[in-house]
């Protein structure tokens, strides 16, 4: 157990190091932080002063060590846009994003299980065709477009739900539905195909031959086995959502989460804030992945700890 955690933490550390390196290469070699962060009107003297303040006039390897060191000390610098520590901004917005992700993914998970199971009952039947067809359509629609169509529908045609910002639970509905659509479609297709696969396995035949009721075999045996790939994909959807796939939804619905703030920071050249967001997200992904592995070990006795 300890060895497993240690190994996963080291791997997670490598991920964060990789992200650090990528961000460093991108910002220092392909771009110039000074140009990015100072207005065009800044004088050459101002630029030089800013560069030396940030240590940008030193050799690159030295800069990288300094850069990585600051991150290790959780020193993410000050947001040039908001004039306060970048991490403060991130921590303020993070819960909003997590709320959105939780609601969206929760919706997708809760709906995809019954939809997929029902479709798998009669492969090729009418219900199956409807579920599969709708899932494929859901997978094919760009998120921002779905969001905008919902806004048109709810703001113009039936003004029932707020279409932007955050405040009441009602504000959460449209962003969460938009975010849920793609994971819902993918999870439903997976539940369907996994259930079909499991239902054709010998142990299901034996369970039926033992005289167990159909419903029990379906839920207690087939679904239980199908849940393992389902959890894998649901975990992957969570990682994807964390990895920035909420950016689009948050932008469309002006949801004040990390994605929206990331876009705003990029538009304002607020490098430190963007960096802080990227790091927090990278660490979150690493933690979620470790957590998922632990969950799998709980669910599947065939996976040993080690």
């Amino acid at each position: 157990m300890a060895a497993f955690l240690l190994r996963r933490l080291i791997q997670g550390g490598l991920v964060v190091l990789g992200v650090t390196f990528t961000v460093f290469v991108v910002t220092r070699i392909f771009g110039n932080p000074v140009d990015l962060m100072l207005p065009l009107s800044a004088s050459p003297e101002q630029r030089a002063a800013f560069a030396s303040e940030l240590g940008l006039d030193r050799p690159l390897p030295v800069q990288f060590v300094q850069f990585a060191g600051e991150l290790l000390r959780f020193d993410f610098g000050e947001s040039t846009w908001q004039r306060r520590p970048a991490m403060e901004v991130v921590l303020e917005r993070l819960p909003n994003s997590l709320l959105l992700i939780g609601a969206g993914l929760g919706l997708a998970i809760v709906l995809s299980l019954p939809a997929g199971i029902l479709a798998a009952q009669r492969p090729g039947g009418i219900l199956d065709r409807i579920v599969t067809g709708l899932s494929l359509v859901g997978l094919s629609m760009p998120q921002f477009w779905v969001g905008l169509l919902l806004i048109v529908l709810f703001a113009v045609t039936i003004p029932l739900l707020p279409t932007s910002g955050m405040g009441s639970p009602a504000h959460l509905v449209l962003p969460a539905v938009t975010l849920a659509l793609v994971p819902f479609a993918r999870l439903t297709l997976l539940v369907r195909s996994q259930m079909m696969e499991e239902l054709n396995k010998p142990y299901i035949r034996t369970a039926l031959a033992r005289g167990l009721p159909h419903r029990r075999v379906l839920v207690g045996h087939a679904l239980r086995n199908a849940l393992i790939p389902f959890l894998t994909l649901a975990g992957w959807e969570l990682v994807l959502a964390l990895a920035g796939y909420t950016v689009v939804v948050e932008t469309v619905f002006a949801w004040p989460g990390m994605g929206l703030v990331a876009i705003q920071a990029l538009q304002r050249g607020d490098l430190f804030l963007v960096q802080a967001i990227v790091y927090v997200v990278a660490v979150l992904i690493v933690l979620v992945n470790i957590l998922l592995d632990l969950v799998f070990k709980l669910v599947d006795p065939r996976i040993g700890l080690g």
């Binding site: 961000v23 991108v26 392909f30 990682v239 950016v247 990029l266 990278a282």
Partner: peptide, 23 residues
């Protein structure tokens, strides 16, 4: 394959946006 594992865990879209906005 370790390289693949590591890159799969990158915050994809955010890095893409960062790179594109800088380059």
């Amino acid at each position: 394959m370790r390289l693949v594992d590591i890159q799969v865990s990158f915050p994809g879209i955010l890095l893409i946006l960062l790179i594109v906005s800088i380059v």
